[in-house]
């Protein structure tokens, strides 16, 4: 009973905040609603006994992705009002199409029925009771689904390579520490015989010869980093 109540509460907030993500005028608000939606979704996961997924959702989506979105939205100067112009123009047609699709899906989902074991499964998702949710996931991931798991790993690798390819640039004029050069440099420290008692006058400290390389300061490049 309580579980059902909680489900409907979370589900309602989830759907409502999802609607707000799309309709909110201020993009910052949109992202904040998105975070709310994630939280509610994770609560739903908890309700069906998938605590690992619930945590992952919070940590990955809320902690990393959504916050990153927020930064991007706040830092980039995007005129969202202008982007919405098209939305206004196509809204009627879009509404018709969306409405039809919605009706059709309702029609389809009307034919939905749960299997007999559904209720039991919801209470005890793991076939073998002794294993925790996380361990059970790990087991299937590394046995039955190792192929897909590894392939998914490849996808992430590709995403990383892609990000680097598209955004990483070798900038001219940046200076990096090259330890080998530092160690191998000669002629900068010189042992000199100074007349005893003469002392060293201020301003006569020996320095390495000045390099004539210009110390160009490159402006921060914002190309290609907006997604």
């Amino acid at each position: 009973m309580i579980a059902a109540l909680a489900f409907y509460a979370f589900a309602f907030v989830l759907v409502a905040s999802a609607v707000m993500v799309v309709t909110a005028r201020n993009p910052v608000h949109s992202v904040l609603f998105l975070i709310l939606a994630f939280f509610n979704a994770s609560a739903l996961f908890l309700l069906i006994g998938a605590e690992f997924l619930a945590m992952i959702l919070v940590i990955v989506y809320v902690g990393a992705v959504a916050v990153l979105f927020l930064f991007v939205v706040m830092m980039l100067d995007i005129d969202f009002a202008r982007l919405r112009e098209g939305f206004q123009r196509y809204a009627p047609v879009g509404a018709v199409i969306g409405g039809i699709l919605f009706l059709e899906l309702v029609l389809v989902l009307a034919g939905w029925r749960f299997t007999d074991m559904a209720a039991d499964l919801r209470l005890a998702p793991n076939p073998v009771g002794a294993v925790s949710n996380t361990a059970a996931l790990g087991r299937v991931l590394y046995t039955d689904y190792v192929f897909l798991f590894q392939a998914a790993g490849l996808i992430l690798l590709v995403a990383m390579i892609g990000a680097i390819v598209l955004t990483h640039r070798e900038r001219v004029g940046t200076r990096r520490q090259v330890i080998a050069d530092q160690v191998g440099r000669t002629g900068s420290v010189v042992l000199q015989n100074v007349a005893i008692g003469a002392g060293v006058s201020p301003g006569s400290i020996l320095r390495p010869p000045p390099k004539d390389a210009p110390k160009a300061v490159e402006h921060h490049d914002t190309h290609g980093g907006h997604h």
Binding site: G86, F87, Y90, V93, G94, I97, L101, E104, L107, V108
Partner: peptide
């Protein structure tokens, strides 16, 4: 050339096909 239009066409296509199916 507008992505939104393209996506829209795709969705219309899906809707037509679903309707056809049903």
């Amino acid at each position: 050339g507008r992505v939104a239009n393209y996506a829209f066409v795709m969705l219309i296509g899906v809707v037509i096909f679903v309707s056809l199916f049903l």
